[in-house]
């Protein structure tokens, strides 16, 4: 899988630092995610991967540094969380965060409609144009759900809480795709899945990529990373310790040391 060296930078973190009361969760982190690639972040637990995602969505305030997005290099840390999705970013969560009592379809609809028309008057009057808009949104939502074959769409009127674990993860991905982002952030998309299901998710990620979304994912499952990632970043102690193709990174001494300790790295 050759990475396209000429691709433009979509997301750039510059000297990003997050200090949790003395613990440096992210430490002077600089990296660039290229448009059109699937990029993976690996690293031991506590190395700052999820914190990095939370900083991108501005769920945390950074201690210092910038996160620049898109051609206009907008600093995401200047935007409130609810405006980041509209910039073209959507994420999944390591611990699932669906809307459990809303239906599968409604879960997707939220992602599509949150920046349009939450008006009070239009809710009361319910003009014709709005009804048409609702119908169109519903159709598009169903189309997005059909990305996973029958699995989600056949449950579209059931509460999200009634889905199986793997399908909940799929719904999280569908919800991201529905918001039409340029960059999709996947936080451990196959955590807790069996090998068959993992293979399915690999296909799904490639499918999303083919649709033109750039993907940045955090994953511990090396099979998945090897299978999909064009480029890999390895994190340790909140900073990037290696970067490159999966092969380069997985044999990098610093990465082996981070996972297995100093002695293993010497061999």
């Amino acid at each position: 899988m050759a990475a396209d060296q000429t691709a433009a930078t979509l997301l750039a973190s510059e000297a990003l630092t997050k200090n949790f009361g003395g613990v440096l969760a992210v430490n002077d982190l600089s990296l660039e995610v290229r448009e059109g690639e699937i990029t993976a972040i690996i690293g031991p637990n506590g190395s700052g991967k999820t914190t990095f995602f939370n900083l991108i969505m501005h769920l945390y305030d950074a201690t210092s540094g910038q996160i620049l997005f898109g051609g206009e290099r907008r600093n995401l840390l200047d935007l409130p969380t609810h405006k980041i999705n509209a910039q073209g970013l959507a994420r999944t969560f390591q611990t699932l965060r669906l809307f459990p009592n809303l239906t599968v379809l409604e879960n997707v609809l939220i992602a599509m409609s949150s920046h349009v028309n939450a008006g009070f008057l239009s809710a009361l009057v319910k003009p014709k144009s709005l009804r048409q808009q609702d119908k169109d949104a519903e159709e598009k939502a169903l189309e997005t759900l059909s990305m996973f074959g029958a699995r989600l769409i056949s449950m579209c009127n059931e509460p999200a809480s009634s889905l199986s674990y793997a399908n909940r993860r799929r719904l999280e991905i569908a919800r991201c795709v529905a918001s039409q982002p340029r960059l999709i952030l996947l936080d451990e998309p196959v955590a807790g899945m069996n090998p068959t299901e993992t293979r399915g998710v690999i296909e799904d990620i490639q499918r999303i990529h083919e649709k033109g979304h750039t993907v940045l994912l955090i994953e511990h499952d090396m099979k998945l990373v090897e299978g999909v990632a064009h480029r890999v970043f390895a994190f340790d102690h909140g900073t990037k310790i290696a970067e490159g193709s999966f092969r380069d990174v997985s044999t990098h001494p610093a990465v082996i040391e981070a996972y297995l300790g100093k002695r293993a790295a010497r061999h």
Binding site: L98, F99, I110, A111, S113, V116, A123
Partner: peptide, 29 residues
């Protein structure tokens, strides 16, 4: 009823269900 069935109502319910997820998907919580 109108509020509940509207976009506004759905976003309210999203907040009730999971505030962080709602915010990440553009709901001005």
């Amino acid at each position: 009823i109108r509020l509940r069935d509207s976009n506004l109502g759905r976003q309210w319910e999203a907040i009730r269900e999971d505030e962080v997820a709602a915010r990440c998907f553009g709901v001005n919580v």
